[in-house]
């Protein structure tokens, strides 16, 4: 019997009220996250991956501009269970940055440019743990050291603009880890960084996760990063989960044509086959969320679509190996070569 999940999200939906009618950004998303696990949330812009994570952190605008549906049960350190979507704002504030933390793509916008980084980290520690200013600053220094910032204690008095992009992301990670969270939500944390710096940050996250046993939800559009860091993968398209499962089977034997298309549209570095064949691109663009097709949202771009695909939305069904696939034709496609 598997241990109780840290986070259990069921039927999460996020709908924005716009001038042109309700915009369903996330539709019926369910997943479980266990301690020490890394779940990669993959999708393109508009897939709802970021909105889903912001909704879990309750960082979306309040009703009536945004309506949330479903539940997200979080198991706190003291054993109590809370529904993140129903929690009072005060209680949520105590969890956020303490037991659940988040890091973002652009660290510069999340750091306050007029405060020294040491103060910014210390602030979170003082708020959540009631530590003294001095103790909090000392802890901030330790954290900066832990995230690999050279000369950490001197850097406490640096301002964000003194640091490079990679160093700022390390500071953000230090802030997120200040209270040893049980869940870290990382929203495209390496997208703005160079590949050599990205490699450093991914390595750092892996080390920290290993040491703390925290669970990570890693949001990315980069399949290379997924292969690097994930235990499980959840692929989203037009607000829906279209494929979910353990990382290696999903990445090597994708069942959903969209996942397959994504994997094939990335060029491979192989000196023998270099540039010999055109990339298999996915034609078209993502559907307008205000005018979603009636059937499978991917059907208009899918090479394998049948008339039935456009008629009614397919269910998310188990496809072996603990995998879920939202495709009417996955059985037929599983037999055909990729």
């Amino acid at each position: 019997m598997a241990q109780e999940p840290l986070l259990e999200v069921s039927h999460l939906s996020v709908t924005f009220a716009t001038e042109n009618g309700p915009l369903p950004a996330v539709r019926d998303v369910s997943f479980r996250l266990s301690a020490g696990e890394t779940l990669a949330l993959v999708g393109e812009s508009g897939s709802g991956k970021s909105v889903a994570s912001l909704a879990l952190m309750r960082l979306v605008p309040p009703a009536p501009r945004v309506s949330l549906g479903g539940s997200a049960h979080f198991c706190a350190a003291d054993g109590s269970r809370h529904d993140l979507l129903a929690l009072a704002p005060d209680a949520m504030r105590r969890l956020r940055g303490n037991e659940i933390s988040m890091i973002f793509q652009e660290p510069m916008t999340s750091l306050n440019p007029v405060h020294r980084i040491g103060e910014q980290i210390a602030e979170a520690i003082i708020f959540h743990q009631g530590a003294s200013h001095r103790a909090a600053l000392a802890r901030a220094g330790e954290l900066l050291e832990k995230v690999g910032i050279p000369d950490a204690h001197r850097r406490l008095s640096a301002f964000p603009h003194h640091l490079s992009g990679g160093m700022r992301q390390r500071v953000m990670i230090a802030m997120a880890l200040a209270c040893t969270p049980r869940v870290l939500i990382a929203d495209e944390p390496t997208t703005a960084l160079d590949v050599t710096v990205q490699a450093q940050i991914l390595e750092l996250l892996k080390e920290l996760q290993h040491a703390n046993g925290m669970a990570v939800v890693f949001i990315t559009h980069n399949l290379g990063v997924v292969a690097e860091i994930a235990d499980r993968v959840m692929v989203m398209y037009a607000g829906l989960i279209v494929e979910e499962g353990a990382m290696v089977p999903v990445m090597t034997r994708p069942r959903m044509p969209y996942t397959r298309g994504l994997l094939h549209s990335v060029p491979r570095i192989d000196p023998e086959t270099l540039g010999s064949a055109p990339l298999t691109a996915i034609p078209g663009t993502v559907p307008d969320p205000l005018h979603l097709p009636p059937g499978c949202a991917f059907a208009p771009r899918c090479a394998h679509a049948e008339p039935a695909c456009a008629a009614a939305p397919p269910p998310l069904e188990p496809a072996g190996e603990g995998r879920l696939v939202r495709c009417r034709r996955w059985r037929a496609l599983a037999e055909a070569p990729a």
Partner: peptide, 13 residues
Amino acid sequence: QALFSAAPVADPT
């Protein structure tokens, strides 16, 4: 070499 090795590859094998 460093640049090349840092580029993540979408193939877990």
